[in-house]
Design a protein around this nucleic acid. Structure first.
Lengths: 247, 247
DNA sequence: ATTTGCAAGTGTAGTTTTAACACTTATTCT
DNA sequence: AGAATAAGTGTTAAAACTACACTTGCAAAT
């Protein structure tokens, strides 16, 4: 490996009082960003994967990702990558962790920081999707992915499950207006569990963060079900209780 | 910035069916590891800081850290750094997050992954400590640190507070044998809160993960207080209940 | 016009968990 | 023997949680 970049580095300081320094050729590495893009299709929690169109591992499924560019923060890079593959801006995302196994990328030492993102599948730009051979997979039925991407997904899923219980982020996965049934199915999908609808609605209502609209969604039943909307103002204000869902 | 390392990179694939590839000169960066070392002194939650003996920011306080070397994972590097500054092995640690603001290090673009670690201050090797001008500071009273280290600590603290509520990691900060009072003070320090000792001991006992010893600690009272020990076997087994402390 | 089918919508009671609270005990020092 | 000190212990009221089943509103079919 080449070593030519210089960086001031502390050396041999532990070994006495003399303060000695030395320019040291540090090992620079490639930094990548991989995104776990979650969506929800009224039934399952899904992730957006692409079929790699380049080597190594061409033709296999992988997370969407890219390399960090020198003027970017990781957040900026993740935003760029998310926009590239979904056509969307203002996507909710959070850093998950950084993966650094020496041989995780067989071509060259690459360290990758994973971000998870939540998007509303409806809004997702199908055009870009097709161009990249992208596909939504149920988390449970996803194919085996390249490198350590499966591990990344497991980490992201764990984080999502935790966040969903303490932050009102579920709404990021739903259309602006949604029914209680949708909301319940979403949390059932995230936690892979079954919830009682009476207990669910009681808990949600007690949080005081939703606005019940006069509109109904008629697609799923003759009676129709009322639509709700997350109200960030209520959530921030006194009336909104701390968001905690511990079913 | 030098660009000479080649890496296969996907280019121009979105723009049609033709699959074109190109070697691209990626931007490599320096990767650092910074460690938030927590300790507990029977009263306060503390962090180990060092007075920097080299530029930039010589003389200011900072987290302990170092650069990732090419054959290392981040975990390996963190382990190495922790051992260097504390003399200890088998330290409990967990990755917190990676910080990537472009100008976080004024000398050169450096991206840093933070780890938090929990150690028993008693076991901490004072010798190495002094050589590095290291000092324990109460989290609340710590000096202003260099770069974005304060931000790192806030992240780490948040993580620690969460973990402490759902994983039996508090014991990492205590001697092997400890009193209920110590344990309670520890959690009070972590969460910066006051707990009722009767409720505390009842909850802890209900978890069934501690062994009560016949020994007493006589240093803090005439009566003496019984010593307890965390029993990982109980915790793993049926009798150990899921560790959840929600005071 | 009436009936039927379907999912939406609603309330309660028993149980468990939490929170608040004060006195007794064991020991040492004087 | 008495005083001083921190350790150790249990109960009760309130809140949260869990389990559980029938009614409503609407539209389609008859």
């Amino acid at each position: 490996m080449r070593k030519s970049d210089k960086h001031l580095r502390f050396m041999d300081f532990a070994n006495g009082n003399a303060k000695t320094y030395q320019y040291h050729k540090e090992d620079k590495v490639l930094l990548a960003v991989d995104c776990i893009i979650f969506g929800f299709d009224e039934e399952d929690l899904k992730i957006l994967l692409i079929k790699r169109g380049f080597e190594p591992e061409m033709g296999k499924w992988s997370l969407v990702g890219g390399f960090l560019q020198k003027q970017e923060t990781l957040e900026t890079a993740a935003t760029r990558i998310l926009n590239l593959y979904t056509g969307l801006d203002n996507i909710y995302m959070e850093q998950v962790a950084t993966f650094s196994e020496v041989d995780r990328d067989p071509v060259e030492r690459t360290i990758s920081t994973a971000y998870y993102a939540l998007i509303n599948i409806e809004e997702h730009n199908q055009k870009l999707n097709k161009q990249f051979s992208a596909n939504w997979f149920s988390v449970a039925k996803a194919p085996k992915l390249i490198f350590d991407h499966d591990k990344m997904i497991q980490h992201a899923l764990k984080r999502l499950r935790n966040r969903a219980a303490t932050q009102p982020i579920g709404f990021e996965l739903l259309p602006e207006k949604f029914t209680m049934r949708q909301l319940q199915k979403l949390y059932e999908a995230i936690w892979d569990t079954q919830l009682d609808k009476r207990n669910f609605i009681n808990k949600i209502r007690s949080l005081n963060i939703l606005e019940k609209l006069d509109e109904k969604d008629k697609t799923s039943s003759r009676k129709g079900s009322f639509l709700y909307q997350f109200d960030p103002q209520k959530y921030q204000s006194e009336e909104g209780k701390p968001f905690v869902l511990n079913f």
